[in-house]
Computed example of a mutant assay.
Amino acid sequence: MSLFSFSAFSLSPRLSLLALLPSHFVDDATLSDIGFRIVSDIRLPRALVAALSGSALAAAGVIMQGITNNPLASPSVLGISAGAALGMAFVSTLAPWMGLFGTNTAALMGGGIVWAVVMLLGSSWRSGSDHSKLVLAGVAISALCAALTKAMVILEEDQATGVFIWLAGSFADARWPAWFHLWPWVLCGSIGAILISAKLNVLQLGDDYAINLGMSPTRYKIVGSVLVLVLVASVVSTAGSLGFVGLLVPHMARLLVGIDHRKLMPLSMLIGACLVVGADILSRAIVFPMETPAGALLALIGAPFFIYLVKRSS
């Protein structure tokens, strides 16, 4: 194993730099080198997908905490992750012939359907209302989706291993097709998140204050929830369930820049990208040559932090 590369092949920093260049700038001998192919075809898209995933989940967490005015809120409140997992499990176990893009489409549709159901059953976006019904609906629907997902996996044992690894959150299969599927969704969602960041500042002051300023709280809460849907469902459809990123990262960013969402949003996206890429690197290092799912490492980091937040807020 080469030092710090966690590979059976020699992967030098030079190869990593060359992999960033267009192919016509690289000589034929390097292009045929197996180490170069590993970096350019496996490691590079994997790192990019991990960075985009962390950035998207962090942005979704900032939005979710902003529109609910609750520092303990996370994107999973809307049940999007559970719905996307159900859609992915359905296609993976019952229609594996559909391939990557069929699986991703099913995950996006599953997340969207569950989001719509949770919004209809539990949300009340009237000014001054709380979101307790929304949380209860999200928890209930998420539990139902989780039960159905497990049932599908148990009934289709041939596909169980792959689905379980995906549900744990892993970038082991992240290649260029996954990157090309992910980046347009994350780009659109990220631009929208940055555009509404100033409005999130106003929502923190209360609905009455926002109305007095001529702003519609209901409109921006719905826009924010749609952005959360786009960001979370696209990540779950590509990399699986990565818990606690949307909850943990906004708090880390607040320690550095405070509560101004115009600064909080871009910094959270940067920290989220670094955190998930770091977790993916550790996932290869802990039990090399086997891999620990990155989602499991993020849960090990996030669960104690969540307990700390609950105790501090109580």
Rank of each mutant, 00 (worst) to 15 (best):
C188S: 14
F164P: 00
L100G: 02
R126G: 06
S142G: 06
S132L: 13
V118H: 08
Q159F: 07
W97E: 14
M109C: 15
L144C: 08
S142I: 01
G87D: 13
P177M: 11
M152E: 06
M98Y: 11
M152K: 02
V114F: 01
A140D: 06
A172G: 15
G83S: 11
E157A: 14
E157G: 03
A151G: 03
D173H: 11
L187C: 14
W166R: 01
W179T: 03
L121A: 14
W97C: 10
L86W: 04
A168Q: 09
A116N: 03
C188L: 13
I141T: 07
F90S: 13
C188R: 02
A137W: 04
G162T: 12
L121N: 05
L100N: 04
A107K: 01
V186R: 05
S124H: 15
P96Q: 10
R126F: 07
H181E: 13
L187W: 13
G79P: 08
F164R: 12
C188W: 08
G138K: 00
T105M: 12
M119V: 11
G87R: 07
L155K: 09
P96K: 08
S129D: 11
G128C: 09
W115T: 15
W115D: 02
I80M: 11
S92E: 07
D130F: 11
K150Y: 12
T103H: 00
L120E: 06
V139I: 13
W179C: 06
G128R: 11
I113Y: 00
